[in-house]
Amino acid sequence: MRKSVQLFSSKKVAPYVFTAPFVITFIVFFLYPTISTIIMSFQRIVPGEAKFVGFENYRILFDKTFYKAVSNTVVFTFWSVFILVTLPILLSVLVNYSITKFKNPLKMFIFLPAVVSTVVGGVIFRQIFGELDTSFMNSILSKFSIPPQQWTMKSSTGMLLMVLLAVWRWTGVNMLYFMAGLQNIPNELYESADIDGANWPHKFLHITLPSLQPVIVFVVLISVSAGLKMFEESYVFWQGSSPMNIGLTILGYIYREGISFGNLGLGSAAGLILLMMILIVSVIQLKYFGLLGKEEQ
């Protein structure tokens, strides 16, 4: 007994014991599924049997539907990242500005959507952007003599709806990150800039933005990975089947093939492609922002 106690508290064993929970969850919930996804992507799976079919799934996968899913996902990611970085920065600076009135109501107003589920928000968006003349958005448009739109039927307006929903939902959260970043910028910097006669755009460009750089990197990272994994924003508008696939994302494609149609092999193949994409984009980002290999320095 004494020996075992010594073993547990020894410097050799203890680290393994402490890291075990992570390692075990990693193996069970990530490594094992990944390996079995790789195997399944080369199989045709029906209840009770799985047959190896070589690259058959990949042959079926690479067609215009999948390309559409990829291009939708990329376009969505671009716009959502672009807006979800610039808008929250501006808002957080505004909220941080000393002469802004009604700061707390403003903060609450912007942050509130973050606690609403995307699905609930989406249902409301769906009603606002109905295609009848009497729907909320179309009735506003008609005041400006713009003809009513079929929002969920066209590729451009469909993308607009998805980006809008994501922006509505996440602006508050990202603003929170930037506000925390702003707290860390010493006031002295602004004071000395004042003495040097800098106006506010100068201060914003040369003090605020550079100081926020680590936060921006972080927000871009999580926004890109969230954009690539987008599913709900599309699902709430079209329930998985949109006209001409204007709302199809990679995750939507995996869901449709793997779960709705039961083609687990094809779904696995698409899942692997998504994994590759996220991996490549992440490595490029980390490399570009100089976060890779930092520990050795």
Binding site: P47, G48, E49, G262
Partner: peptide
């Protein structure tokens, strides 16, 4: 039809 493939359950 998803269930009528392979060994029918």
């Amino acid at each position: 039809p998803n269930f009528l493939r392979g060994d029918i359950p």
